[in-house]
Design a protein around this nucleic acid. Structure first.
Length: 464
RNA sequence: GGUCCCAUCGUCUAACGGUUAGGACAGGUGGUUUUCAAUCACCUAAUCGGGGUUCGAUUCCCCGUGGGACCGCCA
């Protein structure tokens, strides 16, 4: 058994959002840093909302960002018999009891509490069933016999010591009326069976910890370490939810964000190491620790993601960038034909300098990717007679060039500028429009040099 | 409402109780430039408020204020 084991335990009730990805990342990083294990557990005990397609999507998302789990993923519902057995054991040993309250009764208690402005805590009616008659028409739930008095505390690896008064904890349900176990029970049983040593999760689970701790104690099981990391907030300032826009991994992939960039962004969101901003995967494994995790929630900042992405686009190996671009294009745009590879590699040096996303590269490479350049009427208007004359002159000179390079092109263009008493723009803009169909894009020399000579001539002649 | 947690530039964050409170992103100004960019130089910008403790608080304590999480037969 290894010293450290962590797990990521999402419920497959929707696509993973990046808060979840970050939790997974921190767990993964922590276990890698400690040369331990990292497991994935699919918490699918809510049968109505759990979907296989989400399970697959979650696994895909993790894989995309570079997180791999040890062993096969653990499916919580497959362990349901064990959960039930433990519930029985708790019942038998007096740590839990059957509660025959009807749903209406509970509802009434809740409304009363609301009216009085006091917090709702189930009134523990069936904790002591003496003198109560068991109703025949009600299937009972199983409740855990929570401590009523005293204080309780946990030593959290991120939050420090957290105290709570036991009186605020209710006798929570561990088994539904259909006898299926609830989260509080299943999570504890599975964490125990999987020998999880460190539970790293969002701090929305903080209160659960006190409930779960009591289950551990009742069973005489060793309590794992807990680390509750602060949540990621949306721009609006509240907990990131599945309903927020652009918060799933797929949304970022679609935007043309690369996994390294997102990984780096998520790493630095809530965690820091001195002044360091850029971390390779290996660096992040070596340097990650729980001490560096802050306590306050952080806001999602898309410009930061973009700027990190820009950094990675500029620094990644060009062959790899081409591969990513092609994957991106075939997934979300138009497939890039292999016969364009050589040309793109040649151009990627300057294309990547003006891109924040893969989509930007794709857009700026349109003049290469499209065999037929279309010029919108708006731009066509810019090509007046004098511009056309310049293009014609350029064509004549260009045809004569034997060795096409920047120096030779400069000579021609300089000559044209002088002859027409204009500036570089006077020559550059018509050329750009003729060759790319756009006013924006890479430098003129870059464009010409990256196109085949015949292709340049073809495009120029089409204008005149 | 109850319980718990949090609080440094707009954002992400540094700072053994002693720093001109640092960095990054964004923003601004200027240089370079054929468009858009990129790039280079420089600049703006923060310790939530009030009390303590201390020779000295961003840092420790208390109160307030603000924000968040939880309060499901969801996980």
């Amino acid at each position: 058994m290894s010293l450290v084991a962590t797990r990521f335990a999402p419920s497959p009730t929707g696509p993973l959002h990046i808060g979840g990805i970050r939790t997974a990342l921190f767990n993964w990083l922590f276990s890698k840093n400690n040369k331990g294990k990292f497991y994935l557990r699919i918490e699918d005990t809510d049968k109505e909302r759990s979907k296989d397609k989400y399970k697959d999507q979650i696994i895909e998302s993790l894989k995309w960002i570079g997180i791999d789990h040890d062993d096969k993923e653990f499916i919580q519902s497959e362990n349901i018999n064990n959960h039930k057995e433990i519930a029985e054991k708790l019942l038998k040993n007096g740590f839990a009891y059957k509660c025959y309250c009807s749903e209406d009764e509970i509802k009434e208690q809740k409304e009363n509490a609301k009216k009085k402005g006091i917090p709702f805590v189930y009134n523990r009616k069936w904790r002591n069933p003496e003198g109560l008659e068991v109703p025949k028409d009600i299937k009972p739930v199983t409740r855990f016999k929570s401590k009523i008095s005293g204080d309780n505390s946990i030593e959290d690896l991120v939050q420090g010591k957290i105290n709570i008064s036991n009186s605020t904890l209710e006798d929570f349900i561990i088994q539904r009326k259909d006898l299926t176990p609830t989260y509080q029970l299943s999570a504890v049983v599975d964490d125990h069976e999987m020998n999880i040593t460190h539970v790293i999760r969002g701090d929305d689970h903080k209160i659960n910890t006190f409930k779960q701790k009591q289950i551990y104690e009742a069973l005489n099981w060793k309590l794992p370490y807990f680390a509750h990391i602060p949540l990621i907030h949306s721009e609006s300032g509240s907990k990131l939810s599945k309903r927020d826009n652009a918060s799933t991994i797929d949304d970022y992939i679609k935007m043309g964000i690369m996994s390294d960039a997102l990984r780096n962004y998520l790493l630095r969101l809530g965690w820091s190491y001195k002044d360091k901003e850029i971390f390779t995967l290996n660096e992040s494994i070596e340097l990650f620790n729980l001490k560096g995790v802050g306590k306050s929630p952080s806001k999602l900042d898309i410009t930061r993601i973009l700027s990190l992405n820009e950094h990675y686009i500029k620094n990644i190996d060009e062959e790899k960038l081409l591969k990513l671009l092609k994957t991106y294009s075939s997934n979300f745009k138009k497939e890039i034909d292999d016969n364009k590879n050589k040309q793109i590699i040649k151009s990627i040096k300057f294309l990547k300098n003006k891109a924040k996303t893969l989509e930007d590269i794709y857009q700026n490479a349109q003049y290469i990717l499209k065999d037929d350049i279309e010029i919108s009427s708006e731009y066509l208007k810019l090509l007046d007679d004098s511009s056309k004359a310049i293009l014609k002159d350029f064509t004549l000179d260009f045809e004569k060039i034997i060795q096409i390079n920047k120096e030779n092109l400069e000579i021609i263009i300089k000559k044209l500028i002088e002859k027409n008493k204009t500036n570089f723009k006077g020559v550059g803009q018509p050329l750009r429009i003729a060759l790319t169909g756009s006013k924006f894009g890479p430098g003129i020399y870059d464009i010409i040099l990256s196109l085949d000579k015949n292709e340049v001539l073809k495009r120029l002649k089409k204008i005149n």
